[in-house]
Amino acid sequence: MWSACLFRALFFLAHSIYTVFEYIHGAVDSVINALVAVCHEVLSPTEKNKQLQRELEKVNKTPVHLTVLLGHEEPSLKDLANLVLWCLATRISFISFYDYKGTLKKKEEEFRYEVDKKKSKADHVIWHSSLHSTYKNGFIGKKIHVKVLTEEDSKNSVASLTREISLGKDREFGIESVSHSLRKQFEFPDPDLGLVCGKTFSLYSYPPWQVRVTEFFTVKSVRSITFSSFVEDLVRYSNCDQRLGK
């Protein structure tokens, strides 16, 4: 009896200490990130460009497609817009945001506005999941493709393929043809790098056929990603040896 009570008391104490420590650690991280953002804002455009070039010198390989899994947190449009701009700066051609709850999808117009007001006029952002997708021929400058995904997109792609299989009497379906059809519906190439936001690692029903060779890193929150930490993740990715199933 006494041992059980003692165990519960020790467990409660340990849990309380951990909770307080986690809260303090999160608060300190938020303050540091805020200070870094403020310091960056006071830099002149020339100083910002020099800082950017110094950071990018650390990266020797960038992903073609970066995907961001938002997890349980509510989307921060400002921070997500920063990721789009940083991908433009590092020449990443595709970025997708997976929000299984569908909140970002509902705010996509606001998200687009947040990106447009921050990006350079010379940059071109192609929105694949927007009704107002735009393409420019003869475009000169940096270009990036952006897509917002939800859990429904994953389910709908499977349902669509199932209907295609059931109606295609003259066509034989194998593993390769099914995989090709799913990728075609996805539009983007398979993601090379994925950032999973949250305390625990979970794919939140992300289309599994797209992430067979994706390198995943976890981040506490999309709000905690700074340009320096973003570059650090790119450096980690560039040092990975992706064998592509070999």
Rank of each mutant, 00 (worst) to 15 (best):
S3D: 11
C5D: 13
L6I: 04
R8G: 11
A9I: 04
F11R: 14
L13R: 13
L13I: 09
F21V: 07
Y23W: 14
I24D: 14
N33W: 00
A34D: 10
L35D: 08
H40N: 10
L43R: 15
S44W: 06
T46S: 06
N49D: 14
K50M: 01
L52G: 01
E55S: 03
E57N: 13
K61H: 06
T62P: 09
T62G: 12
P63R: 10
V64C: 14
L66M: 04
L69P: 00
G71R: 03
G71N: 01
H72L: 13
E74S: 12
L80K: 06
L80D: 07
A81T: 01
N82E: 14
N82D: 10
V84F: 08
T90G: 07
I92G: 10
S96A: 07
S96N: 07
F97V: 02
Y98G: 00
Y100H: 15
L104H: 08
E109I: 06
Y113M: 06
S120P: 04
A122F: 08
D123E: 07
H124T: 08
I126L: 11
I126T: 13
I126W: 15
W127P: 03
W127R: 05
S133R: 15
T134N: 12
Y135M: 05
K136Q: 11
G138S: 04
G138A: 02
K142G: 03
K142N: 12
I144G: 07
V146P: 09
K147A: 12
K147G: 01
T150I: 08
E152H: 14
D153I: 01
S154Q: 05
S154N: 11
K155D: 12
L161R: 05
L161D: 13
E164H: 11
I165N: 15
S166T: 09
S166E: 09
D170K: 10
R171Q: 13
E172P: 03
I175Q: 09
S177C: 00
S177D: 10
V178A: 02
H180A: 14
L182W: 05
K184C: 00
E187V: 12
F188N: 09
P191I: 00
P191Y: 02
L193I: 00
L193M: 04
L193R: 03
V196W: 04
T200C: 03
L203V: 03
L203H: 12
Y204C: 05
Y204A: 01
P208N: 13
W209Y: 14
R212F: 06
F217K: 09
V222P: 00
V222I: 10
I225T: 02
F227S: 05
S228H: 14
S229C: 04
F230I: 01
V231C: 07
E232F: 02
D233Q: 05
V235M: 04
Y237A: 01
N239L: 10
Q242W: 00
L244A: 13
L244H: 04
